[in-house]
Write a protein that binds this DNA or RNA. Structure first.
Length: 753
DNA sequence: AGCACGCCGACT
DNA sequence: GTCGGCGTGCTC
């Protein structure tokens, strides 16, 4: 007799489970159920079965429905989500439900794209073919196929005969066959398999190292410059792992691989390459541009083991993958792996935990690894970088220094001092003549500017008033095309005023340069050039980016102007010049991670120049050409720059030398935020001597979307001390009345302040 | 988080 | 006289 009490996780911000009566229904752990909760019905996941409840038994309600036709979530994923919810101090039920495809969070049953599969019964097996009427040719044919070849899918039946499905149904009604629903596996049309390129020595060494230890947990950092062929290493590793068959009971299961990729853009390219090179394996993707039914279907294919390659963005780290044997993380330094709301998890860190628990390898690739990863791969190898043995050499380090296309040269990088030349509309003469040269040679150029819009500020020349956002502590950006002022933080829009609201003067000037203005300037300066702009404003439609990139490939574009959207993974063989307009603000940002990010970004854009056999040039306009960052960039020396940054971080005791966490709070009324944070601050100080807690402060963006913000920072040398404090602090705060009046959240290992 | 209940201001 | 403002409290 099954246990009568069900402990169920629900999508509510309460860190506990809810007890229900199973009402005699057979229910398993991990199963999806519908339960009455307050006045409404909620979807829940069964976490445990029990004989008794701490809650008054007469108050327990019976569950409404069990979705018993669905595969329950496996213990491994449930436990991974439990770990994450604890580690990131987020309510477990919400973490769990958020990890499911939206279709599974809705009350309606999830109608998966399923198809019937026919299986022979014992009775059917015994049937003598001769006992069936000779004239029912198709019926006999189907029965024979079932007897001799086993289960038949609808597609297989269709291949036998047009009326085979009808015959199969008849066999079912005779009791000779049964149907079972299986997931429809959509066969991707065969792509011409591209030939396997030869590996260079470095690639071969990397593959060999990893495949040697492919049966156990190990984290690998694959540090390879742009164009060094990291993708080829991924492909070889997948081939190696997928060829292994795993005996699981009587049946053989193919291994599965999870590939994590940063958000948007990049996915189709990598996916296409994997499909072309690994056409024999079933590949599915999980990302935000899928429709909800596609997402559900792909998720179920991963869960059922039918999909062997799962390529997805950060949320896919929580997908059930029963035969997971390898995790690949492309561009591991990318900040889109960190969720910036609800549960603030880092998919890379969760992946490391998952791999460790499964005892499988995880391979993180990047040209510019996150400093945390570099530190874990380096440790004592770096001169001057000290670390305790437990923190060092945690990762295996594999380096790819050569570009895979042997003819390809590293681009030449020049910094032009903007303080020593006359700028024409923000452009140095050197950059303008370099652009002219490319036009003459019929080569392409890319201009990188990290500001969209026409100009970042609207300034009154008379009284120096600057158009502010009313809901955020930010300036409104001028968008001349739509004749609007727009806040890039909250989306607020207003018309461009004709006179200054402060002094009444009509001399309002757009000041500074954005992508739109740069595009306009180029058009007037280089009238023959065909220019395209790529930023969030010009790429409103889903396929707009693809269209523009196609035009670039077809040589219909001479100059591409855009934001960091352009930085990633697009190969343009005829692109030989990259110009970087203005990144100086990041050099002196109060955010200690700004220079790390800028370096990664510039390395990435620089990698766009001269990919094929043509030498590339990178021109960076800056007022600080001697900055250490540019020196390192010129020599394309990530390692020495990263080691310098590590030394700095060690001196000031910043991550990765300490573990940090934030307690963030926001409210319409700042005094509530202050009260709450003060209370939390005193609480945290009292709770632990091993954790350093700083006074409440305000973030760079003090006000956002009409909410006044603040936070306290905590750091510790030992992760467990910090975790313990956070657990106790969150527990205490939940019972404080003020905690209900502000929006607050814990951010473990925050990336932004 | 929802969604109730609950007690005070401007409306048909 | 009601509709509705969002304060506080609960959900197995």
């Amino acid at each position: 007799m099954s246990k009568p009490i069900l402990q169920i996780a629900l999508d509510v911000p309460l860190a506990r489970l809810f007890d229900y009566l199973s009402a005699g229904q057979h229910v398993q752990v991990g199963q999806r159920v519908l339960v009455p909760f307050g006045r409404r019905n909620q979807i829940g996941i069964v976490m445990a079965l029990a004989d008794s409840s701490e809650f008054a038994i007469e108050k327990l309600k019976p569950i409404t429905q069990v979705f018993s036709d669905e595969v329950p979530l496996d213990a491994e994923v449930l436990s991974l989500i439990k770990f994450s919810a604890d580690y990131y101090h987020y309510p477990f039920g919400q973490a769990l439900l958020a990890a499911l495809p939206a279709r599974l969070r809705q009350v309606a049953p999830a109608v998966a794209r399923k198809q019937y599969c026919y299986q022979i019964t014992g009775a059917g097996q015994q049937v003598d073919m001769e006992s069936l009427p000779k004239r029912q040719r198709v019926l006999r044919m189907v029965l024979q196929a079932l007897q001799n070849e086993g289960a038949q899918s609808e597609a297989a039946l269709d291949a036998l005969s047009g009326s085979a499905r009808k015959a199969a149904k008849e066999l079912v009604s005779l009791g000779y066959a049964v149907t079972e629903q299986v997931l429809a596996v959509k066969r991707v049309p065969a792509i011409l398999e591209t030939p396997q390129p030869a590996l260079n020595a470095e690639q071969a060494a990397a593959v060999a190292s990893i495949t040697q230890e492919v049966q156990t947990f190990k984290a690998w950092l694959l540090h390879g410059i742009t164009g060094s062929g990291k993708t080829e290493v991924y492909i070889r590793l997948m081939q190696h792992v997928l060829q292994q068959q795993e005996a699981h009971g009587a049946a053989q299961h193919s291994a599965q691989v999870l590939v994590l990729v940063p958000e948007i853009n990049l996915t189709p390219q990598l996916e296409a390459r994997f499909r072309a090179r690994l056409p024999q394996y079933h590949l599915v993707s999980l990302h935000s541009s899928l429709s909800e039914s596609e997402r559900l279907h792909n998720w179920q294919l991963a869960q059922s083991g039918a999909a062997q390659i799962i390529i997805g963005t950060r949320l896919s780290i929580f997908t059930p993958i029963p035969h997971l044997k390898l995790i690949l993380i492309d561009e591991e330094h990318d900040s889109s792996y960190k969720q910036q709301d609800s549960m603030r998890y880092h998919a890379r860190d969760v992946a490391l935990v998952r791999a460790k628990r499964l005892n499988i390898p995880v391979v993180m690739g990047s040209a510019t690894p996150a400093l945390e990863s570099w530190y874990n791969a380096m440790g004592s190898q770096v001169q001057g970088v000290s670390a305790t043995p437990s923190q060092t050499n945690k990762y295996g380090l594999l380096t790819l220094k050569q570009r895979a296309v042997s003819a390809a040269q590293l681009p030449k990088i020049d910094c032009i001092d903007t303080t020593k030349v006359n700028l024409q509309h923000g452009l140095t003469p050197q950059l303008v003549s370099a652009l002219r040269l490319r036009l003459e040679r019929k080569e392409q150029s890319l201009l990188f500017i990290n500001r969209r819009g026409y100009s970042p500020v609207l300034l009154c020349t008379a009284c120096h008033w600057i158009a502010p956002c009313t809901r955020c502590s930010s300036r409104l950006v001028v968008h001349l095309g739509q004749k609007k002022l727009r806040c890039h933080h909250c989306g607020h829009e207003q018309r461009i005023p004709h006179q200054c609201p402060s002094c009444g003067d009509a001399d309002l000037h757009p000041t500074g340069h954005g992508t739109q203005r740069l595009e306009q300037t180029l058009a007037s300066l280089l009238s023959t050039a065909r220019i395209a702009r790529v930023d969030r404003d010009s790429i409103s439609r889903k396929h707009a980016l693809v269209e523009i990139l196609d035009r670039v490939h077809n040589q219909e574009i001479d100059i591409l102007v855009g934001t960091q959207m352009l930085a990633k993974g697009h190969d343009f063989p005829n692109l030989t010049l990259v110009g970087v307009i203005d990144t100086d603000s990041a050099l002196h940002s109060p955010d200690f991670r700004a220079s790390e990010r800028l370096f990664a970004q510039l390395m990435q854009v620089a990698g766009r120049a001269g990919r094929a056999d043509k030498a590339g040039q990178v021109i960076i306009q800056t007022a600080f050409p001697d900055h250490a960052l540019f020196n390192a960039l010129r020599s394309q020396d990530y390692a020495s720059y990263a080691n310098d940054l590590l030394l700095e971080r060690e001196q000031v005791q910043f991550p990765p030398y300490v573990f940090t966490a934030l307690l963030r709070a926001e409210a319409h009324d700042f005094s509530l935020v202050q009260q709450f944070l003060q209370l939390a601050f005193t609480g945290a100080r009292a709770l632990s001597q091993h954790v350093v807690t700083y006074d409440p402060v305000r973030p760079q963006m003090e006000r956002l979307k009409g909410m006044e913000r603040g936070y306290i920072l905590m750091h510790a040398h030992q992760r467990p001390a910090l975790q313990k404090l956070l657990t106790q602090l969150v527990y205490q705060l939940r019972s404080e009345p003020i905690a209900a009046k502000v929006r607050w959240a814990v951010d473990v290992n925050p990336l932004e302040f």
